[in-house]
Design a protein around this nucleic acid. Structure first.
Lengths: 211, 211
DNA sequence: TCTATCTTTGACCAACTAGTTAAATTAATT
DNA sequence: AATTAATTTAACTAGTTGGTCAAAGATAGA
């Protein structure tokens, strides 16, 4: 027999999963509490019983997804390895992550840009705010060897992250110009290929950079 | 005295501008016909007189904005110049364009990803679908010299476009990790700097690419 | 000036939305 | 088995939304 407390957990997590799906697909303004309830297999009143308002439910989902994304980006850079190795591992793992979560980037980008306060909570976390300096200091010798100054770090970091995120976020738009992108099989092949292309591209640019 | 026909044009374009603003800010689902009417300085019934439904108004705005974006991307590549020169000009002009239209990328990306049929109309335009081949054929010698095969074009093109678009689209998210991005002055300086950074980065990667 | 047509409006409506409530059901405790 | 507490539901509400309509106002041509 299923215990009540397990059911709570089950129900709550069913709601959470359903809400994640719907919010990712439709965004905050496009999401409907009724649809979330339907997909969770419960009714609307129970939804409001667990999460009093749409805002509360959205916040819970959003915080988790944003943290998941940032941690995925940052965790690799906390390990012990050369910058070059970290970058390769980042592109490998992040692209795998994005293939499994293709709607996540646009969802996050869109919601944050429409309501920047959503990110306020995480900004306070010191861990995130100074990451640029931490990464640079850890690899200053290697990076200086590539002609990268501390002030170049934003350019470099955004370039690396953009290499993996942009193709996923812009897929449907780029597909206008490159119809192959519409086929899932071809797009996945493109993303697999991108791991090596991006890593090689960046390393070549760094190694031969004018100093 | 203002002629009636001029007024029509004025009203219609006031509606169009207001709708562009509101849709860009709030997206389709977040936009309100009442707010569009208010910003255009008219009432809701007149709004529906000129554009019968929200969908019709949205479509009109969306088509114009999508075309504006794609033309900006593609026009430069139709000119006569080396690939290298075109890429530099593209980054210069596209970044300027994006500084003036900072909400445009997220708006387009978001709406297209939520409803890919929005792009169907433009896909038919042969001009767009085969652009990859056209560009390659025009510069095949130069690109082969960089070790770029025709099958590498999607990777290269998405890399170039992402260099300019991603920082604008991901600004508020990257600002969590790099708080400087929040200040408009610093962000604009970053984007100005990016013209040279991106162009230099890409050319270095191309010139030293393993063949 | 009169008339036919095109514009503009305030008031309205039906459908939908987030959120509430009170009562029914289920589970845990004694 | 009875009591208590937690869980689930159908039915409802108040506010918002896109869209309509009939009538008033403005314009150009005769």
């Amino acid at each position: 027999m299923v215990k009540k407390k397990e059911l709570i957990g089950q129900t709550q997590s069913k709601i959470f999963d359903a809400a994640t799906e719907v919010f990712e697909e439709k965004g905050y303004t496009g999401a409907r509490m009724q649809e979330i309830a339907d997909r969770a297999g419960i009714n609307k009143a129970l939804l409001h019983y667990y999460f009093r308002t749409k805002d509360q439910l959205f916040m819970a989902v959003f915080q988790v997804l944003l943290k998941r994304m940032l941690d995925k980006i940052l965790s690799i850079f906390n390990e012990e390895a050369t910058f070059k190795e970290k970058m390769r591992r980042f592109l490998d793992e992040h692209i795998e992550f994005l293939i499994k979560n293709p709607r996540l980037p646009i969802f996050l980008l869109n919601e944050i840009s429409r309501n920047p306060e959503l990110a306020e909570g995480l900004k306070e976390t010191l861990q995130y705010g100074q990451i640029r300096d931490l990464i640079y200091d850890k690899h200053s010798k290697e990076l200086k060897g590539y002609g990268i100054k501390k002030s170049d770090m934003p350019q470099l970091m955004i370039t690396i992250v953009g290499m993996s995120v942009f193709p996923v976020a812009a897929r449907d738009m780029m597909a206008i110009v490159m119809p192959q992108m519409n086929e899932n099989r071809k797009f996945n092949a493109f993303m697999q290929e991108r791991k090596e292309f991006a890593a090689g591209f960046i390393m070549t640019a760094l190694k031969n950079r004018k100093k």
